[in-house]
Simulated assay, not measured.
Amino acid sequence: MPELKNLAILDDYQGVTLKLGPWDRLPGLTKTVFRDTIADQDRLVERLLPFDAILAMRERTPFQRALIERLPNLKLLMTTGERNRGIDAAACAERGITFSGTPSFGAPTVEITIGLIISLARKFPSETASLLAGRWQSGLGTTLEGKTLGVVGLGKLGSKVAKVGQALGMKVIAWSQNLTEDTAASHGATRVDKATLFAEADVVTLHLILSERSRGVVGTGDLARMKPTAFLVNTSRGPLVDEDALISALKGGRIAGAGIDVFDIEPLPAGHPLLSAPNTLLTPHLGYSTEENYRRYFTGAVEAIEAFNAGAPIRVIT
């Protein structure tokens, strides 16, 4: 099998990919880094057509069947992380394209989640702005101890967030479509129905995989059930929440605020309504963006290329 010659590294917003991976192990491979995201498929095809290998950063650029079928030179498509629902694995297989993942480091999204929760409760953004403007202690935050944390999705990440919530002295309740009482109890949480979770939680945090079943799982009715003093935090995927309903709830003061790390459209366009919505703490999808995680990603990508060149692909996603 001929060795790969041309690698496209996509959506390297921070310009760090080549600094954080052992790319010197691939001296015969031409590496081209793209730091922007192209949504227009014709322009994207024109960009990617020359490459026989592509490294995609999470779901920043989706690879659906219509795109994959227009890339006849592509032999290896890699995603950072163990899975990527933005890439059509079946289409890759049908076209004879190897689709591989990489290892990741820990669960850094948990840290972003807890950071957003604490920052909202203790009003870090407004208090910092007040201090920089020359004022001192302009408002009062709220303590999390004794409050109720509602976890939507008690899997790998949600269960870790639940443990931190418990360490902060919070009562933890949880819901997802497949969650059982026994599983919830094993993580120190109480399973409740969806309506109860949104009505009782002081903080609602989302940790579901985006699928057709979970898309829009948080809608107008759910937000209407929340306490006016409650916060919504989403570090999972933007489309889990009806964005228009969330903006309306924030502007109407129906919830106390929202911490959002993920959006329907990324990067978030200038002038987007969420940018001017009140009582929000917005971060640019930082959940997985740590040096340790990136080093693991890019080492895994080098390993995947070496394995492909040796005729024994690794971490193949089907």
Rank of each mutant, 00 (worst) to 15 (best):
I114K: 00
I54D: 01
M1F: 08
K156T: 04
K31N: 03
P239M: 14
E181A: 09
G21C: 09
T318S: 12
F308E: 01
V164N: 05
R296E: 10
L208Y: 10
A66I: 10
G106F: 09
Y288A: 06
G216Q: 03
S159V: 00
R213Q: 14
I68E: 13
K163H: 08
L18I: 14
Q64T: 13
D193N: 12
P313M: 10
L4F: 13
T128H: 15
A90K: 10
T109R: 06
L131A: 10
V151N: 04
E145Y: 07
H285C: 09
S289W: 15
G101C: 06
F263K: 06
I305V: 04
I255T: 00
L44A: 05
F263I: 04
A312Q: 08
R237W: 13
G252R: 08
E266M: 05
R85I: 01
A312H: 14
I117C: 03
L26K: 02
T143H: 09
E145P: 04
S138M: 11
G150C: 11
L26R: 04
G165E: 09
P22F: 06
I209P: 15
A93W: 05
T109F: 01
P22Y: 09
K147H: 13
F263N: 01
A201L: 12
K147M: 10
G216F: 00
D11I: 00
K156R: 11
P72F: 03
R83E: 06
E145N: 08
L7F: 12
M1Y: 11
F231Y: 15
E82Q: 10
V192L: 12
K163A: 13
G169R: 06
L4D: 10
V316I: 01
L168E: 07
E145H: 07
P269Q: 15
F298Q: 03
L275T: 14
G96Y: 11
A91S: 03
E291A: 14
V262T: 15
L210D: 03
R35H: 14
A90H: 10
T280G: 09
R70E: 06
T37Q: 07
L268E: 12
L206C: 01
V152P: 00
R95V: 08
D88M: 04
T143D: 11
A304Q: 13
E266A: 05
S100K: 01
A162W: 01
Q41W: 14
L268G: 07
A310R: 00
L4P: 12
W23L: 02
Q41N: 13
L120W: 15
P103Q: 07
P125W: 08
V45C: 14
A199P: 01
K227W: 11
F198N: 06
Y288N: 08
V241M: 05
G253Q: 07
E266G: 02
R135E: 07
F34A: 07
I87Q: 11
S130T: 08
T205V: 14
T30N: 09
C92Q: 03
A258G: 04
G271E: 15
A277L: 07
P125N: 10
S289A: 15
E145G: 09
N84W: 02
L246D: 00
G141S: 14
R254C: 08
S100G: 03
P108V: 03
K19E: 12
L208M: 12
K5I: 05
